[in-house]
Design a protein around this nucleic acid. Structure first.
Lengths: 219, 219
DNA sequence: TAGATTGTTAATCGATTAACAATC
DNA sequence: TAGATTGTTAATCGATTAACAATC
């Protein structure tokens, strides 16, 4: 996982957010019937501005598109993946094997994003020693040892809100570099630790805003 | 759930994304010891620009802040919640009671966001008739009837990617207004249906970008 | 009062969109 | 060639930040 910041100076955060959508769209195409695709088509299908899509694709694509024919789908998929850093693999552990933790452990799709979840931790003695998707559950005491020996870079927090800060502290002491936090809590971590929050409240607020506007119109 | 678009003309999308973080921060404060708080303090704690926080709070707060003392924490929490539309309640159903679906069904916190998940649907005969967090699982055939009689506005899709479009079509035919999609798929829905994607690939791409920059620095 | 903090107006910055030349 | 599409340069738009007056 390594985003090509060097090449194109204009790697906007916004563009980064749109890339996964391009990828989903391109991967849903039938590769035998659709060999090439234009930025225009993608823009229309996704409801985006044509020039915006063209700039985004130009930033990600190594060989660029061709006038008249557009971009080669296969190449473009490969380039966007590389642009998003899905080629390099990071090792991760999950803290908290409740239902959400189990769901993430069992999800096969992370491999494609360069995320390799190798183990989990939980305090529940009934879960310790079990495996989910062939990934073992360890007691929290083993965190420092396992994170260091398996060279874990990312800790994924899926414990209930009240234990999230503890989990964060434990992970920090275990030498990880980044935290992906699914608990609805603002974590306090040393500045060198990267914290990315998966905040469902944001999605929900945006959805609810659109919905309220829509329902008002119906009256 | 109804965002106050009318009052303040400058309801930026970006501000909407920051609001949930303010809320988490404010709710973590001890209400007996911290009665008032300044935008300056919040900005420092969250690593944001002071003026930005002040503008955001001005947009959400009804009574505004006071020079010297700042905002009353309790009032501010209430105002931001109302601003985000957490006061109005929307009814939702979950399609797909795998681990992710079960996790969402069991999560108690959605009530605070104005989301009331009242039922679930699954094709698995072993799950049909069961309850999770007192919410019953029905077979998909019952979707139109139940969604209409319970006045469901939101459908939450937590089925595997390959069934997500089917689930979307079913929900649309059942008269729902909005879809919250957790499957890594671009859904095709009629334009009047609001689709909000919970795309973990975006979070992961952002995290991986930061991480790659960080790891490069260490060399 | 003095000064911390608010809220607003103006300046800057970044992202989007429009216009257009280059190219296969 | 003609024309669809790319990629770039310039204009616009929106969001952030800076400067400052108002206020408790």
């Amino acid at each position: 996982m390594a985003v090509r910041l060097e090449k194109n100076p204009a790697v906007s955060k916004q563009a980064l957010r749109r890339m996964p959508a391009y990828l989903l769209y391109l991967e849903a195409l039938n590769p035998t019937t659709v060999v090439s695709i234009s930025a225009t088509t993608i823009a229309n299908e996704l409801g985006l501005n044509e020039v915006q899509v063209r700039k985004d694709l130009a930033a990600a694509s190594l060989s660029g598109g061709r006038p008249r024919t557009g971009f080669k789908v296969k190449e473009l998929i490969r380039d966007i993946k590389s642009y998003l850093g899905y080629d390099d693999v990071y090792n991760a552990v999950i803290i908290g094997t409740g239902k959400l933790g189990q769901a993430l452990l069992s999800y096969q799709g992370f491999a494609e994003y360069g995320l390799d979840i190798v183990a989990a931790f939980d305090t529940n003695p009934e879960l310790i020693g079990q495996q989910f998707n062939r990934k073992p559950v360890y007691p929290p005491e083993k965190m420092p040892e396992i994170c260091r020996s398996l060279k874990i870079q990312i800790g994924i927090i899926t414990v209930p809100a009240e234990y999230a800060q503890d989990a964060c502290d434990h992970l920090t002491e275990s030498g990880i570099q980044a935290i992906w936090n699914f608990a609805p809590v603002l974590l306090t971590a040393p500045p060198e630790i990267i914290v990315q929050n998966e905040n469902m409240a944001i999605s929900l607020a945006i959805l609810s805003q659109h919905l309220s506007v829509k329902l008002k119109k119906q009256h």
